[in-house]
Amino acid sequence: MIVTKEKPVEEILEYLAPYKNVLVLGCDGCTQPPRGLKQAKMYAMLIEMAAKLRHKDIKCRAATVAMQCDNYLCSSTVHPQLEGVDAVLSLACGIGVQTFAEVFPDVPVYPGQDTVFAGSQERENGKLYERCKACGDCLLGETGGICPVTACAKGLMNGPCGGCVEGKCEVPYEIRDEKGEVIKMIERDCAWYRIYERLKKLGRLDLYRKYRSPRDRAVSAWPRLLEGV
C-alpha cells in the first residue's frame, strides 16, 4: 500500500490561509494508515480549531472518496460536495492530490499528507516498511523474494558491499520527527546478507553467485505511462 504521514498542522494552515470554506477530502483507497472519513472529520475539526486559535475563520467540511486516484470515482463522487468550497485539503497520497487537480482544474487542492513510500505494514509493532521502488523491472524471483533495489541502501545488484558487517547494514533506519530531524537510528539487516541466507536455505546459491549486469535504468525513467489497460 501507499504509506503517507500527516503534514504538520502549521503547514496545512499556511496552505489554507487564503480560504474560508474548505473541504477535507479523505481517501478510502490503499493509503496506510487509512485516511478515510474519520480522519477527514478529525482534520476538519482540528483545522477549524487551529485557525480559531490564530484568530482566523476557516469552515471545514469532511467527505471521503473510495479511491481519489481514480479519475472517474474522484469526479463523480466529489462533485456534489464542492458546492461553496474555496479549496480542498486532500488526505490522499500525492497521486490522489494530482488526480483531483486534474479532474477539478478550477478547485485549488492542497496535500494534507506527505507520501512516503510503497510499503508493508507490521501491525504488531505499528511499523511500516518501505518495500517497493516501483522500478518496473522486478527481480524478486532471483533474490529470494527480498528486493535489493529497495532493501539495500545502495540498491546494489551484486551485493553485499563492504558496509555489511555481521549481517548488518552500515546505513541504519533513521526515524525523524515532525521537523525532519533524526531522533533515532535503528539497526538494519543487510539486504544482500538476507538474500544470501534465504537463497542458501532454498538451495539456490547459484542465484546468489550469478553476476547481474548493470540495470537498464531507462525502464524506470519517469514519468512512465502504461497503455491499453
Partner: peptide
Amino acid sequence: LTGDHPKKGDTPEAMPVFDLDGTQLVEL
C-alpha cells in the same frame, strides 16, 4: 569500488548514485 553510502560521510544530504555497483564497474 562500490563506495560508502553518502550518509556515512560529511555530505549525508547527497543523492546516493550507485547506478553501477563495484562489480559492474569492473565490467565497464
